[in-house]
Design a binder for these strands. Structure first.
Lengths: 208, 208
DNA sequence: TAGATTGTTAATCGATTAACAATC
DNA sequence: TAGATTGTTAATCGATTAACAATC
């Protein structure tokens, strides 16, 4: 069924899910047009995307909010909570560890690691920063599934290697370097300065 | 000349630039294949992208690092420093304000704002958190060009409206909501939980 | 010259949009 | 029934890839 969903669709599904979560207490039904409006896309796009997950709207009526929510959750593999570790307990790592949005959306930060002895033992929310060497042992015990890299650029590759060695197959990398991983591991990069540079292009276009 | 560069190309240019900055002290010349390897794309893609900016490599040799760096900088409008403001002085806003990568890449955080009186006056790095009401006046004085929204979701739209009112035309939004802006304003959204949900899809795919 | 590498073309692929018959 | 909205098709658009002549 959901053998495989096109990349572009997968990128939009979380936004649809977000909107459905906000709608769930308000409506029992939503139209493709409602979803489109809330997520900044088109109704045709929404219907096309949803049809990839199988048909189940009702013509003349729309989509059942709860049913659609469940369907997208399942498609994204969000039925059970996924344990996440943060590597790097600097400003960014600390901010990530404190961020409530992860928990609300089914991800649990189970540990924060750092290599710097001065940071080890530091409390962040309910967690205590652990030495990065403990990662591999911990990973098995915690059933760790996702690693978030919040280290400086020059540490990112070696941290990545540790994560891979610990059996993690999904990595979110905030360091501004492309890290190498084996084919079975997925890395997404969030580069804050890159986003600003793209915005800069738009400012420059406007000025001409 | 660079009348307009395809979206997909614009998204890759910052990565090329990053690599060139690392190369500048090592080589005088790089091949499309070197850039491709470092940025996770293909040599054909790199050449195609660069040809959008005009021709200037040397067959059999490659691209002059300095010349290419200048060309991409210019194309992205990165010749002069762009002043940035952060709205929201919570964990994320504080982390962003402390992040060195912005300064290194030509963006200067000129102010941090918050609505909460308990946060106003707080020192972050060399800055002091200011009341969000001061935004509009400050914006003109500082020549503010970019706003980064690091508030909770429910404050994002009103903060956006303030930024727009202050004449800002480029916004990076970290709040997990789609904000509405007039056509002359560009918004990019960085939704951390969305990234995790996309990773979750890949984990789910793997498990089948 | 021989080897390397660009710039560009044509082919392919994937994503988006428009339109509308089906149907609740 | 009339009105609303889906699911799907076909057309369009944009991005990527492969291949190779041009040329340093």
């Amino acid at each position: 069924m959901s053998g495989s969903i096109p990349r572009a669709t997968v990128r939009r599904l979380p936004a649809y899910l977000q909107f459905l979560e906000e709608s769930i207490s308000i409506h029992t039904t939503v139209a493709s047009d409602d979803i489109a409006l809330a997520t900044g896309t088109s109704a045709a796009q929404v219907r096309k995307d949803l049809s990839q997950l199988g048909s189940f709207g009702t013509r003349g009526v729309g989509y059942d909010v709860v049913a659609l929510h469940n369907l997208i959750s399942r498609a994204l593999g969000l039925e059970s909570e996924r344990p996440v570790a943060i590597i790097g307990a600097g400003n960014l790592g600390t901010a990530l560890a404190n961020y409530r949005g992860f928990g609300e959306r089914g991800f649990r930060i189970v540990a924060v690691y750092d290599a710097d002895p001065r940071r080890i033992g530091k409390r962040i929310d309910t967690l205590v920063v652990r030495p990065v060497d403990a990662l591999k042992k911990d990973a098995r015990r915690n059933g760790l599934e996702i690693g978030m890299i919040a280290t400086p650029a020059d540490a990112a590759q070696s941290v990545t290697d540790m994560l891979v060695d610990a059996g993690i197959e999904a990595i979110l990398n905030f360091a501004p370097v492309v890290v190498k991983v084996p084919a079975n591991v997925t890395v997404h990069q969030v580069d804050l300065a890159t986003e600003l540079r793209i915005l800069s292009y738009h400012l420059a276009q406007r000025a001409r």
